[in-house]
Design a protein around this nucleic acid. Structure first.
Length: 442
RNA sequence: GCGGUCGUGGCGAAGCGGUGAACGCACCGGAUUGUGGCUCCGGCAUUCGAGGGUUCGAAUCCCUUCGACCGCCCCA
């Protein structure tokens, strides 16, 4: 055990990778139906991009970024989230001018945050996300939420709750912030140490303090939703009305505050049971000022991201299984004079569309058949001295023990036909004297 | 960044100061000539995450270090 994967990273082994492929496929399918095209951005970006967009006072920027200097002296950062790179790409390629708005983009890939790993949290983790840019209509907020909802339904996730809030906009949020600070400052000593700092730097974050979360203090604090400007209030109401029409249940939480600074108006999270403090599985919101802040036109946007590891944690327990190759249709057992036919037989079978594998350890007949069985193969093709001499191959249906002998040339077609046939399990042709020596598999 | 639990063969897991590191699974080989699954027999850790120390003697005690898991902060 000399080398290990770096702290907070994980290898996804074949059995597990199959589960990933399933959720990725479901996500891509949901995105397709909703009209989102995939975008792939680099895994690292200029450090400035994240500092500007995510917010200098956020934990992500202050202590969680994987930042390094390349050989040209540039400061680069492994992306901690997906929105900023996508927005950057949209601006860089002026996509807003070449496609209809909203521009709908989706992505899936690894993100990096330097944190203490624990359940549902890694340093390299994976997010699937979407961004819809260029339209401010509340219907779009609802549609984005509906996409997240649909996806979670599609993969059969149970016990998730949609939590909704509005964070206002540059018109109304400053006033609310003042009101909140004015309310909290007299109670400064009652706040936890972290919150005393937040009070100065990012007062809204005090609202979702876990330590004295539902204390009378926070509970009785002024609510953002009571301080929204007319436009934000109307927007928020329209989003809720649309969700009501769609029959998507949600709970309003005026204390929902997201950890990234670029959010405006709608913010939402889908929270799940059973993940401890890391219970957010999908979250997002509107970011109307982000495009302009990153040097693009002043276009609004909304999106979400979901944590793939958390999602997989919530789905069925990983099945304990064989690590490695999938069960083949055919396992070629070749030995003696037949050994030299092994590879060419495999190639013929594969060319016929069958999955085929064989022993590569030069073991005996018995051991090879054992492998065929253990690998879960449906058929074994046996080519030994006798078969090789006759230009034929013995075929054995492993579940029943039925056996046939066919000419080498006909082998692939014969097997392809049988595997496609509903009567696959009929008895063999009796050409093999050994049939009956073994009981069928129970 | 803070706190807790823990690191014994491919995996799971005993042993917790005294000469050969249980056991289960997996794996490899065999049980009369070329036929798998069941059963039986045999094999499979000079070594207990790494480094140092205490001791006549350590996987078992101490220190350091690396790592894993869990919780907190924060986030997806």
């Amino acid at each position: 055990m000399r080398y290990q994967a770096p702290r907070g990273t994980a290898d996804i082994l074949p059995d597990e990778a199959a589960r990933w492929q399933a959720v990725e496929a479901a996500f891509r399918e949901a995105c397709r139906r909703f009209g989102y095209g995939e975008i792939r951005t680099p895994i690292f970006e200029q450090t400035e991009l994240f500092a500007r967009s995510v917010g200098a006072s956020t934990d992500i920027v202050q202590k969680e970024m994987y930042t390094f200097t390349d050989r040209g002296g540039r400061s680069l950062t492994l992306r901690p989230e997906g929105t900023a790179p996508v927005v950057r790409a949209v601006i860089e390629h002026r996509l807003y001018g070449t496609a209809e708005l909203p521009l709908k983009l989706c992505y899936l890939g690894p993100m990096f945050r330097y944190e203490r790993p624990q359940s549902g949290r890694q340093r390299q983790f994976h997010q699937f996300g979407v961004e819809a840019i260029g339209v401010e209509a509340p219907e779009l907020d609802a549609e984005v939420i509906a996409l997240g909802w649909t996806f979670l339904q599609d993969i059969g996730l149970k016990g998730v709750t949609l939590v909704l809030n509005s964070l206002g906009c540059p018109v109304c949020r400053p006033a609310y912030r003042e009101a909140l600070v004015a309310f909290l400052r007299p109670h400064r000593e009652a706040l936890c140490p972290d919150c005393r700092l937040r009070l100065e730097q990012n007062p809204l974050r005090v609202l979702d303090c876990k330590i004295d979360g539902p204390t009378p203090l926070v509970a009785s604090a002024p609510r953002i939703t009571d301080h929204l400007c007319d436009a934000c209030r109307a927007h928020h109401a329209a989003v809720k009305a649309e969700l009501d029409r769609l029959g998507i249940p949600y709970v309003e939480d005026p204390h929902l505050v997201r950890g990234l600074d670029y959010y405006t108006r709608t913010v939402f999270e889908f929270v799940a049971e059973g993940l401890g403090a890391q219970n957010t599985v999908l979250a997002g919101g509107r970011y109307n000022g982000l495009m302009a802040a990153l040097g693009g036109p002043d276009l609004p946007g909304i999106g979400f991201a979901l944590g793939a590891e958390r999602l997989l944690l919530l789905l069925d327990e990983p099945a304990e299984g064989r690590v490695g190759a999938p069960a083949p249709d055919v396992y070629v057992v070749a030995f003696g004079a037949g050994a030299e036919k092994k590879l060419s037989l495999l190639m013929r079978l594969r060319a016929a569309g069958l999955s085929a594998d064989a022993d590569f350890a030069g073991r005996g007949l018995k051991a090879q058949l054992r492998s065929a069985d253990r690998r879960g193969a449906r058929y074994a093709v046996i080519v030994g001295d006798d078969e090789a001499r006759a230009g034929r191959a013995a075929i054995k249906h492993l579940a029943t023990g039925a056996q046939w002998t066919v000419a080498e040339e006909e082998l692939a077609a014969f097997l392809a036909g049988r595997i496609a046939s509903p009567n696959e399990k009929e008895a063999g042709d009796g050409n093999d004297a050994h049939v009956g020596n073994h009981a069928p598999n129970p």
